[in-house]
Lab assay of single mutants.
Amino acid sequence: MKKYKITVYDEKTGEKHTIEIEMSEEELEELAKKLAEKHNVKVRIEKV
């Protein structure tokens, strides 16, 4: 498992949230996809 920083940005409201999380790359990609689809936000992932 690796550490990642996830930034979620909502273009409508301008809200931006960043968290650090430790998980596998596959789980992370699935999480990012679900966030983007369900909440209509942009998701950026960076390795820490």
Rank of each mutant, 00 (worst) to 15 (best):
K42Q: 12
L28S: 03
E46N: 02
M1W: 08
V48L: 11
H17E: 12
M23R: 01
E46F: 02
H17Y: 14
I19M: 13
M1D: 06
M1A: 13
K16C: 14
I6P: 00
V48I: 12
T7D: 02
L31A: 03
K12A: 13
K47W: 15
K5G: 01
K42D: 06
Y9D: 04
R44M: 13
H17I: 12
K16Q: 13
T18C: 10
H17R: 07
E11M: 14
T13D: 02
A32E: 06
L31V: 07
K2A: 15
Y9E: 13
N40Y: 07
V43S: 01
H17C: 14
D10N: 14
E22W: 13
E20Q: 10
E46P: 00
E27R: 06
T13F: 03
K42M: 12
M1G: 07
M1E: 07
I6V: 10
M1T: 13
K33P: 01
G14V: 01
T7C: 08
Y4T: 00
E29R: 13
I6C: 01
S24C: 14
S24M: 13
L35V: 03
K38I: 12
L31Y: 14
H39I: 07
D10R: 01
K47D: 15
E26S: 10
A32V: 14
V41Q: 04
E20S: 05
H39M: 09
E27S: 06
V41L: 13
D10Q: 05
K12F: 10
L35M: 05
E29Y: 15
E25F: 10
K33T: 08
V48W: 03
E22H: 10
Y4L: 01
T18E: 05
E25W: 10
V43M: 02
E30L: 13
I6L: 07
D10L: 05
T18N: 03
M1V: 14
H39Q: 08
E11W: 09
I45F: 04
N40A: 05
E26H: 08
D10S: 07
A36C: 14
K42V: 15
I21S: 03
V43N: 01
K3Q: 12
L35P: 00
S24H: 12
V41K: 05
T7I: 08
I21D: 03
T18I: 11
N40T: 05
H39F: 06
H17V: 09
L28T: 04
E37S: 11
L31G: 00
K16M: 11
A32T: 10
K34V: 07
G14E: 04
E15V: 13
E15T: 11
I6G: 00
E25T: 05
L35H: 01
E46R: 01
E37Q: 09
T13C: 09
V8F: 14
I21Y: 04
I45K: 01
M23C: 15
K5I: 10
H17Q: 12
D10T: 03
K3T: 08
Y4A: 01
M1F: 12
